[in-house]
Nucleic acid binder design. Structure first.
Length: 904
DNA sequence: GAGCACTGC
């Protein structure tokens, strides 16, 4: 029996430079001081010793297996790295024109396209369609637009919703090209940020042209396409185009590229335009059209050397706008201060006791009595008591009530920040029953994780005597459109991700929205008739809101983006990103590169390693991609595919509003005694597959609070991953997948593979009295997220957890976790560094320290060395037959993992 | 003692 002592990493207390760090930021939201979690780590960790056992029997068996493997294995280091094939097909368009396609054929095809277009135009239905199209504001700029496209390589279009830019402009180009007998040579691509819009816009245009979808107009999104060799106008998601760039770096098959919704400043779009700006000089014939909302069109024009801007006026019905002060006048609602006992000086007291954000502070400095002279005393008192930090649900309820009593028909859409607010407001409405007859009102929650998202009643018009009230998050701002909304109630906030580069911490905190978002929310009330927007915040705050939201590239960790930059051979990461419209914080770039080095994707020269090159072919975050490859190598392919698909896409467990205890119980029953959210995902997916085979999948999903759409997507993604693994030679599909699943039911092995992929996302579990506390290297104490199967568990069988997401919300939460052993970490975690004192092993930059007798340390190091060699060989020669060549090494690892079993 | 913005390859 041996003891391994776990010692705690020592470091000097870091000075707090969060203040200076934040001072450098220009945007309001970032000015809220961040704590520097790196301070006081030692204190929070305390010092512990951990005892684990390795029986002499285990030691002997591992020893034997290793010796056997040494005899069997001849290491072949001479094989050079094989570049991944990157084979992915993009059918159609002019890239694959064979030599036999002569000029004459092309001319004939162009003529055919024109004849077809003209004959369709002549039909009565097309004429009706044409007159509809001519009413759109976009039609009035048609000639100017086509002239500008001909004369300029880059063009910026600014236009509001309802102007028809997305459906008309690509169509104008298509018609013009076909009409001028260039149909066969043109290939127009229009990118959309979201899958649904790519499909629906393509469908709309096909129908305007009187064609079937997939003829001259088609779409391509991940795992789904409707296009043909005839297709000349293709709608795709920005992600699909970025993948296409891997094989076709100069987009040689494309004649016109339209990038839509760039004002949203998504990561993909920001990334794409850096590439495009560099590409344009090499492709003088390529036309680039950037489509944006009016609010920041100048920004893009400047980025492309003052490209001309064409503005298209929007068309929506007018929407009246009321701010908090007006809402209070109308509703007569009394806001009660959180400091009721100190009425009169409540604002000052609040200023002293709670930290508010800069926008709220602006309002707290306003002298209510002089600024709001014309308002009633009651309103002024309410404004005094109003808190910018906490939403007053009574005010929301009262506003709904006001609309129902005094305004005309029409659905009400309420923008809230999250699940909790939706749930509480729903309860409050039911409880108070202010609306009297509940059969007159249909109150519907709408949240990305609620099972109601796909229900028809959200989109359908309610019966004529019923009013629909939708309580939604940001999902209703651009992803889901409810046409019959006439009234919008806007709380003015949304949960927003941000990235704290200093603490390497992703955050998800409610913050004030931008003017652009506020405008978008208001617009949701004017789709079918004039509407009203009730803003539950003062005009003073609205006026102080930032113009637009911080671009995503400044709000997220960058490892996946960095991998894509290397994959597209765009040069050094930092200098490439410095060319962005708004370049990310150099510290965030540094963090991403360091992570990629830690997990073996980049070498010291910042070049892709063989592992890194394989990961480029997988559309996954590098950690998850690595987990998938490790699952393949260590013969847990099925579980790795499933877990990778869920982590990359979204959680298949839904969060119902009424039955959350049952939903929680269902998830826990899938986890059984694994202490793992990942195993819960895996078991749920497997049970769904079984249910599907016997045709009871619908009932199964309903009973177990699972989303059938998410599970189906996961299934499709698994197949895509198998194809990609087969392309890079990791999987031989002809052989069947059974060989890659030898340990598919061995949960210790699955957890070890999770550890291999998710490292360095490791936390320590430490007993603190009757409970367990959790510590991370970067920020010290963390909590298990309440939605995790590990929440509320006081005692864990194993000393560590791996996780894929750590997010700061109310506290710093580990969202998903799997309990793992020392051996999983030692064999599959980070590099084993001999400690300076010479008596043990360090990992995670010295944060974890293992010490043990020499023989044990040596045995572990030897096994780890063999595993690493095997891994390296497989990565360099992907066709290597692990079941045959690595059998004993893998068996030795399994032996050790099982010796700390929790399942057996 | 308690909680889950949204996209995408």
């Amino acid at each position: 029996m041996v003891k391994i002592l776990l010692q705690i990493w020592h470091r000097d207390k870091a000075s707090t430079y969060s203040h200076a760090y934040n001072k450098g930021k220009t945007l309001v939201f970032s000015k809220v001081p961040l704590p520097d979690y790196r301070a006081d780590l030692d204190e929070r960790h305390g010092s512990t010793q951990k005892e684990i056992k390795m029986s002499t029997e285990t030691e002997r068996r591992v020893e034997n297996l290793l010796t056997r493997s040494k005899e069997a294995l001849t290491i072949n280091d001479s094989a050079g790295p094989s570049a991944p094939s990157g084979k992915q097909s993009f059918p159609g368009t002019s890239t694959t024109e064979s030599d036999s396609t002569s000029k004459v054929d092309k001319q004939r095809f162009s003529a055919q396209l024109r004849d077809l277009q003209n004959s369709k135009k002549a039909s009565p239905s097309a004429r009706a369609m044409q007159s509809f199209r001519e009413k759109l504001p976009a039609y009035r700029v048609k000639d100017d637009f086509l002239k500008a496209v001909a004369a300029n390589q880059v063009l910026v279009i600014s236009g509001e919703t309802g102007c028809g830019k997305t459906t008309q402009l690509p169509q104008f180009i298509l018609e013009e090209e076909i009409e001028n007998l260039r149909g066969a040579d043109c290939s127009i691509i229009c990118t959309q940020p979201r899958r649904i819009s790519a499909i629906s816009v393509a469908a709309r245009i096909a129908s305007e042209r009187g064609e079937n979808l997939g003829e001259t107009v088609g779409y391509q999104i991940r795992l789904e396409a409707k296009r043909s060799a005839q297709t000349r106008l293709l709608f795709c998601t920005t992600g699909v185009l970025l993948r296409r760039l891997v094989q076709e770096p100069d987009l040689s098959g494309v004649s016109h590229l339209l990038v839509d919704e760039i004002h949203e400043r998504g990561m993909n779009e920001d990334f794409l335009i850096i590439i495009l700006r560099d590409l344009l000089p090499q492709r003088p014939d390529l036309r680039l059209i950037l489509m944006s909302a009016t609010i920041n069109a100048d920004l893009f024009s400047k980025y492309f050397g003052n490209a001309p801007i064409i503005h298209i006026p929007g068309f929506t019905f007018p929407v009246a706008e009321l701010f908090l002060e007006d809402v209070l006048e109308k509703t007569r609602y009394k806001i009660n201060s959180e400091f009721d006992d100190y009425r009169g000086s409540s604002r000052r007291r609040r200023q002293q006791s709670t930290k508010s954000d800069p926008l709220t502070e602006i309002f707290e400095d306003v002298d209510i009595d002089s600024q709001y002279k014309s308002y009633s005393t009651s309103t002024r008192q309410s404004l005094e008591a109003w808190s910018g930090t906490q939403l007053d649900l009574g005010l929301v309820e009262s506003t709904i009530e006001h609309i129902c009593r005094h305004e005309g028909d029409g659905a009400i859409l309420v923008f809230l920040t999250g699940w909790d607010e939706i749930s509480k407001l729903l309860d409050k409405i039911k409880e108070n029953n202010f609306l009297g007859n509940s059969s007159k009102f249909l109150v519907l929650p709408l949240h990305g994780s609620m099972p109601t998202v796909n229900q028809r009643e959200i989109f359908d018009r309610p019966p004529s005597n019923m009013r629909k009230i939708v309580l939604a998050t940001n999902i209703a701002e651009s992803s889901i459109t409810i046409d019959d909304v006439v009234y919008v109630i806007d709380c003015g906030k949304a949960k927003e991700t941000s990235y704290d580069a200093l603490n390497k911490l992703a955050c998800l905190l409610p913050s004030w929205i931008s003017k652009a978002s506020a405008h978008q929310r208001r617009g949701r009330a004017g789709r079918v008739q004039p509407g009203v927007c009730y803003r539950l915040y003062p005009k003073v705050i609205h006026d102080a809101m930032p113009q637009y939201q911080l671009p995503e590239i400044l709000r997220t960790p960058l490892q996946e983006l960095c991998l894509n930059i290397k994959s597209l051979q765009l040069g050094a990461v930092a200098s490439f990103l410095a060319k962005a419209l708004q370049p990310p914080d150099p510290l965030a770039v540094k963090n991403a590169i360091e992570l990629l080095k830690t997990i073996g994707v980049l070498d010291d020269m910042e070049e892709l390693t063989p592992l890194g090159r394989h990961l480029c072919t997988l559309p996954l975050d590098p950690n998850i991609g690595k987990m998938l490859l490790m699952g393949c190598i260590f013969q847990c392919l099925g579980p790795a595919l499933t877990i990778a698909a869920a982590l990359a896409h979204r959680d298949p467990f839904v969060l119902p509003i009424n039955r959350k205890e049952e939903a929680d119980a269902a998830k826990r029953s899938f986890a059984d005694d694994s202490y793992s959210d990942h195993i819960a995902l895996l078991k749920a997916f497997e049970a769904w597959k079984d249910a599907k085979r016997s045709g009871r999948d619908r009932a199964f999903c309903w009973q177990n609070f699972l989303s059938p759409i998410t599970l189906q997507m996961m299934d499709d993604m698994r197949n895509q991953f198998i194809d990609l693994l087969s392309d890079i030679g990791f999987v031989n599909k002809a052989r069947g997948l059974k060989d890659y699943n030898h340990y598919g039911n061995d949960l210790e092995m699955v957890c070890a593979v999770l550890c291999a992929g998710l490292y360095p996302n490791v936390i320590q579990c430490k007993r603190r009295g009757k409970r367990t506390a959790f510590y991370s290297k970067e920020v010290g104490k963390v909590d298990i997220h309440p939605s995790s199967v590990n929440a509320g568990v006081h005692e864990f069988p194993l000393p560590y957890m791996v996780y894929s997401e750590k997010v700061k919300t109310a506290s710093i939460y580990i969202r998903d976790s799997t309990n793992i052993s020392d051996y999983a970490l030692l064999l599959f975690g980070g590099a084993l560094i001999p400690s300076k004192t010479g008596d043990g092993i360090e990992m995670l930059g010295g944060y974890l320290h293992f010490s043990a007798p020499k023989s044990v340390i040596q045995l572990i190091q030897r096994l780890r060395g063999e595993l690493d060699k095997l891994l390296q060989r497989k990565i360099v020669e992907p066709g290597l037959d692990i079941p045959a060549e690595g059998k004993d090494v893998v068996a030795a690892a399994v032996e050790l993992l099982h010796s700390q079993n929790i399942y057996h």
